[in-house]
Computed example of a mutant assay.
Amino acid sequence: MTVRLSDIADAAGVSVMTVSNVMNGKRARVSESTIARVQEIADRLGYVPNIQARSLKASRSHIVAALVPVREESSLLFSPHTVAVIGGIEQHLRHRGYHVLLRGIEQEGDIAQAIRGWSLDGAVLVEFADSEIDRIAVDGIPLVALDSYSANPRTIGVRTDDHRGGWLAGAALTGAGHRRLLFAGPPYEGMGVVGQRFEGFRSAVVAAGLDADSIAVERVLTSFEDGRELGLRLREDHPEATAVFATADVLAIGIMAGLAERGVRVPEELSIIGFDDLEISGYTRPALTTIAQDLRAKVAEAARIVLEEIEGGEGPRSPVTLGVELVERGTVAPPRRA
């Protein structure tokens, strides 16, 4: 038997309009207790919304795309950071009655094609370079770009204070006495996330009285295996380095694995700081010192903004920047040599 909104309303003792608002994500004027009661009754009765009918009535598809770049035939979910972001987006949108279309983007022009090719209400862009976002020329669909410093007026940026994060890493390492430092991350020319982290790191190093030239740089992709390969050759390529700042935890953990294979002890022989504070960072041995970003808050803010824009926002706004903090664990110690 088909369960109707009126069935739920009768069981909950509220109006059909209230039930409709809850089911369609329009909950601003509905109390939390009523939302919980309506949702519990709907679940118990086995209510299944008629997505097609709802979309026709509202002129919406209730579909939001999560677009992720795919490089060199790799899976779009190879990174723990990406998995956490996509999972959070899906959770927030599902609770508001929306569906998430997950799509890997192999070529730059595919972003606009993917947005235009589906009946989307909005899209969240995850881990794209600013240069790719700069060239998006799609109007009429809310677009939220995570970790973006693009000035494209068609997108709304939600990001972490990457400059501050880099500064905290540099201050922690120089404060521990390190003078020969290595920065490891993707190419940072053109600024963006990695560029901001590098500039913050360099600022802290200079503020500590060191020459910016004391920072060696390794341009390496953000993956465990690329980090491991760097760890395997790090002592040969950078024998003077006493500490490393890696722009992502997964990269830092890979570097630690490569160093371990070479018999290099962390932090006794080399200190290392990551960035993200992924759950796995607490499981390494030693546990990884890292720059923590509030990933849950960032994802929640992205979901909130895209839904607000879909449901009547007033267009582009200033980027949202969330704070960071240093989480000290076990991978930083004073150097054996200054």
Rank of each mutant, 00 (worst) to 15 (best):
R4L: 02
S6D: 02
A9C: 02
V14M: 05
S15D: 00
A28D: 10
R29D: 13
R29L: 12
S33C: 04
S33R: 12
I35H: 03
A36T: 06
A36G: 03
R37G: 00
D43T: 00
L45N: 01
K57Q: 08
A65W: 12
R71M: 11
F78S: 11
H81N: 11
L101K: 07
G104M: 04
E106F: 10
E106Q: 14
E108K: 13
G109A: 15
I111C: 14
A112R: 11
Q113V: 14
W118I: 00
W118M: 00
S119D: 12
L125Y: 09
S131V: 12
I133K: 06
D134H: 13
V138N: 13
I141G: 02
T155I: 15
G157K: 06
H163T: 01
H163N: 02
W167F: 13
G170M: 11
G170C: 09
T174D: 09
H178K: 15
Y188M: 11
G190L: 08
G190V: 04
F201P: 05
S203Y: 07
A207N: 15
L210G: 13
D211T: 09
I215M: 06
R219T: 15
T222F: 15
T222L: 14
E229P: 00
L230R: 03
R233M: 03
L234C: 07
A241Q: 11
L251D: 03
M256I: 01
V266W: 13
E268T: 09
I272G: 05
P286W: 06
P286Y: 11
A287W: 03
A287P: 06
T289L: 10
L295H: 07
A300E: 11
L307P: 11
G312A: 04
G312D: 03
L326Y: 06
E328D: 05
G330M: 04
